[in-house]
């Protein structure tokens, strides 16, 4: 069985590899999807496989949870049911109005 620690490392690797695929598919859309800056996009794009392994090997996430408690609460209380478009729209609009740092 995989340890939680190994799973964190794997998630970091998956994140960076998926990021590279998203950037290759549509760079501008990828920047919006990941809420990263143009500069971060350039950095991620150029990472080699060994760079990705080196960055991923840690007990911390390389990406962060961006929502405040208020935002989660507000989004979850918008609309009814888990597949409500109003719920999704409220959360997406909140995420898109966050400054990438």
């Amino acid at each position: 069985m995989k340890s939680l620690l190994e799973e964190v490392q794997e998630l970091n690797m998956t994140f960076l590899m998926l990021a590279q695929r998203l950037i290759a598919d549509d760079r501008f859309a990828a920047i919006a999807k990941m809420n990263i800056t143009d500069e971060q996009c350039n950095v991620i794009e150029k990472l080699s496989a060994s760079d990705i392994i080196a960055l991923s090997k840690r007990n911390q996430f390389l990406f962060s949870f961006e929502l405040s408690g208020d935002e989660v609460e507000r989004s979850l209380s918008t609309g009814r049911g888990s597949n409500s478009m109003t719920k999704a729209a409220h959360l997406s609009i909140a995420l898109l109005n966050k400054e990438a740092v």
Binding site: F28, I31, A32, A89, S92, I93
Partner: peptide
């Protein structure tokens, strides 16, 4: 209105990126 706002939020997020 919320559909338009959702689209515009995506558009505004990317419209000023270099080379777009």
């Amino acid at each position: 209105n919320y559909h338009s706002t959702l689209f515009l939020s995506f558009f505004n997020r990317i419209k000023n990126l270099p080379d777009i």
